[in-house]
Design a protein around this nucleic acid. Sequence first.
DNA 1: AAATAGCTCTTGCATTTTGCAATAACTTTG
DNA 2: CAAAGTTATTGCAAAATGCAAGAGCTATTT
Lengths: 136, 136
Amino acid sequence: MEKKTRSDCPISCSLDVFGDKWSLLIIRDVMLRGKLSYSEFLTSEEKIASNILVNRLNVLEEENILIKEVSATNKSKFVYSLTQKGADLLPIVIEIMDWGAKYNEQCPRRDLGKQIKKDKAGVIKELSQALKKKVK
Amino acid sequence: MEKKTRSDCPISCSLDVFGDKWSLLIIRDVMLRGKLSYSEFLTSEEKIASNILVNRLNVLEEENILIKEVSATNKSKFVYSLTQKGADLLPIVIEIMDWGAKYNEQCPRRDLGKQIKKDKAGVIKELSQALKKKVK
DNA sequence: AAATAGCTCTTGCATTTTGCAATAACTTTG
DNA sequence: CAAAGTTATTGCAAAATGCAAGAGCTATTT
């Protein structure tokens, strides 16, 4: 499997991995919403198509951002969790949320948004701690 | 021009605007590399196609992230600069660069990358100051 | 063991976006 | 006027996306 990177710029390389409209929403679901499985991702409000979802999950797994395991409670089900590499996307996700909450009037500054405005570093620290326990 | 947002999640809304493989590279060129014009963006190492570039510049202008003005030195040339909204993308760009430098071995941790590792907050602060003078 | 239900993944097809090459339209420069 | 520089457009092929249907697998129920 050869990778086609457009350049050796770290930003460009990162965007080669998750620079699309869906990957970071899946990461968000795992990271901030406790979603774990294909069926949960599929029912998120943005309504990702099933073939796109499978494709992105596979890419994120190949890139070692997500890990796929058989569910402990239901052996016909898979659960996805973040690797350390995936958990380290948290600051990116937070900054994107912060910017979006600030500049998109259609997207009310809810929940985390308000909290981030007050204390971004605190929120990141707190969520990092929480993730640390879940990282595979 | 109606906007089609997939949801009212700030992350989703943000990705609706710049969630593609090119927009943030243009932002990077303006923000970190002092590039100003169509022709400069066109010659970046990632080799964006001219039609994509025109499309993204138009979107970024419509979104009030970039401002397009006639060059002072060459009246047949346009120069782009960041608005405050565009300059506020700096933390996102920095975090993406940081992650990319950490996890992509093909993308050597150069220049800013090393500096960010040592003192991310300092780098952001310094670049913010520099941008503040240039924002339109 | 057969039927049912839940979950993941695949397929086919239409639509949209992207990539690439050529070039048009315009302005400044010599 | 000619040449060079700059931005934008067009046509066509390739790739990605959206949507609908359903196949394959496992666990549960009867």
